[in-house]
Design a protein around this nucleic acid. Sequence first.
DNA 1: TTGTATGCGTTATCAT
DNA 2: ATGATAACGCATACAA
Lengths: 324, 324
Amino acid sequence: MPTIKDVALLAGVTVTTVSRVLNNRGYISDQTRAKVAEAMKALDYVPNEVARSLHRQRSNIIGLILPDVSHPFFGELAMHIEYYAYEAGYKILLCNSHLDSAKERDYIDMLKRHKVDAIIMGSHTLDVSEYLNLSMPIVTIDRKLDENIPSVSSDNRQGGLLATRRLIARGCKKIAMITGNLQLELLANQRCSAFKSEAEARGVSYVIVQTKLDVFDYSQYGALVDKLFEEHPDIDGVFASDVKAAHVVHACNRLKKAIPEDVKVVGYDDTQIASLLVPRLTTVRQPKEAMAKLALETVVKQIRGEPCTIETVLPVELIDREST
Amino acid sequence: MPTIKDVALLAGVTVTTVSRVLNNRGYISDQTRAKVAEAMKALDYVPNEVARSLHRQRSNIIGLILPDVSHPFFGELAMHIEYYAYEAGYKILLCNSHLDSAKERDYIDMLKRHKVDAIIMGSHTLDVSEYLNLSMPIVTIDRKLDENIPSVSSDNRQGGLLATRRLIARGCKKIAMITGNLQLELLANQRCSAFKSEAEARGVSYVIVQTKLDVFDYSQYGALVDKLFEEHPDIDGVFASDVKAAHVVHACNRLKKAIPEDVKVVGYDDTQIASLLVPRLTTVRQPKEAMAKLALETVVKQIRGEPCTIETVLPVELIDREST
DNA sequence: TTGTATGCGTTATCAT
DNA sequence: ATGATAACGCATACAA
């Protein structure tokens, strides 16, 4: 691979001059510029970003830690984050934590060694102190770890409220919510408390079931839903995030419960799957693209030393479809 | 951030010694080793991988170019690739080409500048020559660009055959296939030719429709399927990859066609969505995890200068569910 | 307008 | 068993 030296040699100038035309800095005669450009082309020269990173003390790489890109919500989020990163001149180093704390710690360590310019966290399984010691630009998505760590999320409370109200408005008498494990202390827990308080306020009986901790697989969902309907056959409304809601739809089909006649279902996220199910899922839309954009802006501002919003909460919207 | 120098200073040794204990190379007394370890801990030292990369001339980073991680198939693939990369000590730089050739070229260029050790290509929109000039370990997934570029794929021909036979075996008289654009020259095209030749061999009438070129969005699918059924209301069997098949299921629902009674549907990929649809989708399973593992092995062997298989074709399996 | 010299953090070669 | 020094490829302060 040709280096800046080879280019300099061929163009009959020094590396300094080559570097100048490369970065378009300082004065250079058009003639030299042309000579250098020619040499670069002739050698098929590409600047070495590793060397640049070492010198500049920044890599233009952002680490993205997620539970799992193959989950529809995180996949869509990752896609948008990568898009805006690319626009801003950053690259994305992808890490799937699978909610495994050892792996997450390992990844954070790896990202530090690689001198990434910032970390976007869509997963957290460690103690808050470990994130505070990072001394690196960071933003969390859908979780608030600490007053000093910027976060971006959708309005989970409002989302929970919208969903619950919709179920009740449609005449549900006994509603259930299936939620991720509440110990994970996600902002998503606010959906749950909104669900609970709204149900109580309206005098509607309710059930809340949590998925297992430390696990991020879909195999458990089916059994979970079956068990729910077995123990509470009179449930006529369910609120759960899209993938889980899909399992509910599926279980209802197995149990010969018609949707929305017998059971009404409201999802959360508005992932692709919500509009592909039959019936299509009424769901609370998280503004994934906007969240991605803002998460990126938040870390980029930090990288540049500019002040950034410490907490960004985006509005959600109830998308009306056929499952209610 | 403390460097190896700071550690050396604190431990009262030279950087050479620190480097030695860091890499566990050469002779070092237990005493010095302990002193150095202590200093590293005290300073919370982390080695700078950028500097290491520059020296070693390798980054331990692999570039992954995909059309879009938010597509279920590529999302699952990415998840597995990242998993095996992590196991082998590599990190993944994520690139979504969105089937945009300018962007893809840009990404390849970027990956070269960043000195990634290899590229895994799940997308290709450029001329073969551009990939040949890469002079870098590479593997393609689901496409065969050239005799000299290693590829990993599932047995698309066999998959197409299995799907078509299943439709015919279930009594379909007029079958349709919805395929990605054939101009993209994917190995997936083999599904299509298998479909065609099998239908012809069995004397079953058939229709083939392609999605648009240059586009990788799902919005077109709905209209495409509607048009298909409008022009051919007598179609009683459809073969298409999972996401498209989901749109077929959805359209059938709108058109009051029962599945599998009126129309039978066979998918391809066996993504998560296949088992979440109602009815669950009969589909041809691509061994995504094995493909990921082998793709990674293929580039790692190249990185190590070992010989690697130039073409890997993995068997597929028809997963029997309720849509046929 | 262009060149010289130094440093970014690490490893490797050669001494001692 | 440990140290001095050059080199990886690039960018910048300072000279000329």
